[in-house]
């Protein structure tokens, strides 16, 4: 009975292991993408002991961009490494291949391992000469096969170019956060900007307004609030926000321009005055010519 149970459990476990390992072997490689693997095999030339993948140095960032670009052009990992070795010398390769000057790095470990195996096996089997040789050859062959397999397996990773993610997850996350803490102006503002990016202007406006209420003296928030109202087709509603900005900061030129234009177009008094003040402050501004045209047009 016990033997039977043991046998069954062994058979079950072995079957489970086989099925599992087989599925894993057949599954697509998930060990990072190819770009990262290539970057990991290159030394950051302006750092000490860091790979291109791990360094925050600007040169490393530029090298990562070049790797991405070349992979998209369809170059192989080996070609890209060679491209870098041509420009930065062999020392840029963290694992130089035997052909690229790294033969010593392959030879030394092999010699160390072979020497150890020979030493041990000859001590064990004094007299029979072929045994140590055979065992050494087998061990070396095993190790070299393992190296070859790991090196050859390397470029099998996939390359998925980093695509810009939409704002959709951001909106969800930020909504939840705002719901639990609606008194946080930073959260309100972040949600408003995420909604703004997603094109949900009406909802974005509410959160800009909320952020603005929480930080009444922040002219940047108030200005964002005003612009979203304008883009949402409600320029008149933007007037109070813009007036508040100018009360705090009378020389806030974007607000002068925007409020001046809104008032001018609405035919309200004071618009021209604001636009003239804007021109005084920013005569070089690209919008200045348009404003000038607008004003002369109005006069005629």
């Amino acid at each position: 009975m016990r033997r039977w149970a043991v046998g069954l459990s062994i058979a079950g476990a072995v079957a489970l292991a086989l099925v599992g390992i087989l599925t894993a072997v057949l599954a697509p490689n998930q060990r990072g993408d190819l770009a990262r693997e290539v970057a990991e095999s290159l030394r950051c030339p302006s750092c000490v002991g860091e790979s291109v993948a791990d360094s925050s140095a600007p040169v490393a960032a530029a090298m990562r961009a070049v790797i991405d670009e070349q992979l998209e052009e369809g170059r192989s990992a080996g070609e890209i490494r060679a491209w870098f070795a041509e420009r930065y010398g062999t020392e840029v390769l963290l694992d130089p291949s035997p052909l690229a000057g790294g033969w010593l790095l392959w030879l030394v470990p092999a010699v160390i391992i072979a020497a150890a195996v020979i030493l041990i096996v000859t001590r064990r089997h004094r007299g029979r000469r072929w045994i140590p040789l055979a065992v050494t050859a087998a061990a070396l062959a095993g190790v070299i096969a393992a190296w070859a397999v790991t090196s050859a397996a390397e470029p099998s990773g996939s390359h998925s170019p980093t695509t810009a993610e939409g704002a959709a997850p951001a909106v969800g996350v930020l909504r939840d956060a705002v719901e639990s803490d609606s008194g946080d102006p930073q959260l309100q503002l972040a949600l408003a900007r995420a909604l703004d990016d997603a094109g949900l202007l009406a909802e974005a406006e509410q959160h800009y307004a909320a952020a603005s209420r929480l930080r009444p003296l922040d002219t940047d928030i108030a200005y964002l609030h005003a612009t979203v109202l304008v883009r949402d087709g409600r320029p008149v509603d933007a007037v109070p926000a813009l007036e508040r900005i100018l009360a705090i900061e009378p020389e806030h030129t974007p607000a002068l321009l925007l409020l001046g234009t809104i008032l001018w177009e609405g035919g309200v008094q004071g618009g021209e005055e604001l636009l003239e003040r804007f021109m005084e402050l920013e005569p070089e501004h690209p919008a200045a010519t348009e404003v000038r045209e607008l004003l002369t047009e109005g006069r005629t």
Binding site: A57, V59, A61, A62
Partner: peptide, 14 residues
């Protein structure tokens, strides 16, 4: 802007 020219030149740092 993306550093591609400099990398092509083998720049190691600025």
């Amino acid at each position: 802007a993306d550093g591609a020219i400099s990398i092509d030149w083998g720049v190691t740092g600025v």
